[in-house]
């Protein structure tokens, strides 16, 4: 393992992508550490996280469950303040960035309001963020986003009438309605069945290609991470840090053929061994 005893990650030189040095990072995290207080005990859940996400890229955070990848995403979103280090999104604090609607969030559960239909749900956050927006404008924008996620025709459906995949599409449309330049997604397809999951992956890829948003995706699916992202950050446990950053060299745009590309297999093998290793180093 390329981690020194002190816990400082040593990223192998060969794995540093050339691009990160050139383009200015859209999201930047420097020396992030997060402590949680559990029953009076201080516990470090994230340590020494350095992350630079280039503008317009799609990167994944992958790691064993409970490793802190969701916590890292919440730090990037400004929902959890880091104990140490600083995060910037477009050069400002993430909390301020979220208020300026630079950041859109999607969680594992769609968390739609059951008393509102699809279009009302899609417009809800935009109307909350911008009290002065006319209802018709917000709905027009929500309708456009529902169309983008492939839900045109389902605008009037209630959440209880939608499948899990469709609900998650509404949640994505709700985030997109804010027109954020950054989309942070916490295992957005984790609760879906395998087929729906693949379909949603293609849908996300399509959205990314069409909108050019910077997307950070937390996932525990190796295939999903490789298929979707340009870079995969592998996280290890106890306390969590980024143990390796893998550049995915698959050709863009990604298609069905990407799965059979030799580069896919290589990345898959590498990620598997990294994840198995980090899983076995379970803290006591």
């Amino acid at each position: 393992m390329q981690v020194a005893a002190s816990g400082v990650p040593v990223v192998p030189a060969a794995d540093i992508p050339a691009a990160t040095n050139a383009a200015p990072a859209h999201i930047e995290a420097r020396k992030i550490a997060v402590d949680f207080h559990l029953e009076g005990r201080r516990q470090r859940v994230l340590s020494e996280i350095d992350l630079a996400v280039p503008k317009g890229s799609l990167v994944s955070l992958i790691g064993p469950s409970g490793c802190g990848k969701s916590t890292l995403l919440k730090v990037l979103a400004g929902l959890i303040p880091p104990t140490e280090g600083r995060v910037s999104v477009e050069g400002i604090e993430p909390q301020a960035a979220a208020k300026r609607r630079i950041i859109g969030l999607v969680f594992q559960d769609a968390t739609l309001l059951p008393w509102k239909n699809a279009i009302e749900n899609a417009a809800f956050l935009l109307m909350t963020a911008d009290a002065s927006i006319a209802k018709s404008d917000a709905f027009a924008r929500a309708a456009a986003m529902l169309k983008l996620v492939g839900l045109d025709g389902a605008e009037r459906k209630m959440p209880s009438q939608l499948s899990g995949g469709m609900r998650q599409r509404v949640a994505i449309a709700r985030a997109l309605a804010l027109d954020p330049r950054v989309l942070l997604m916490d295992e957005p397809f984790g609760a879906l069945d395998a087929i729906t999951r693949e379909e949603m992956s293609r849908c996300l890829l399509d959205i990314w290609e069409r909108t050019g948003k910077t997307i950070v995706l937390v996932t525990h699916s190796i295939d999903e991470a490789i298929f979707l992202s340009g870079e995969v950050h592998v996280m290890g446990r106890g306390p969590a840090r980024i143990i390796e950053t893998l550049s995915i060299t698959l050709a863009q745009p990604r298609t069905e053929d990407s799965f059979t590309d030799p580069a896919f297999k290589t990345a898959q093998k590498r990620l598997r061994s990294l994840l198995i290793e980090s899983h076995q180093r379970r803290p006591a």
């Binding site: 400004g78 208020k99 969030l105 969680f107 909350t128």
Partner: peptide, 28 residues
């Protein structure tokens, strides 16, 4: 759901607004 409250807070909604627009209808 706490994640929904987080979503509301992230776009600047205060406790009063969350109570009125989310918590109360949710509690019905």
């Amino acid at each position: 759901e706490p994640s929904f409250v987080a979503l509301m807070q992230s776009v600047g909604a205060g406790q009063g607004k969350i109570l009125l627009r989310v918590r109360i209808p949710h509690s019905l």
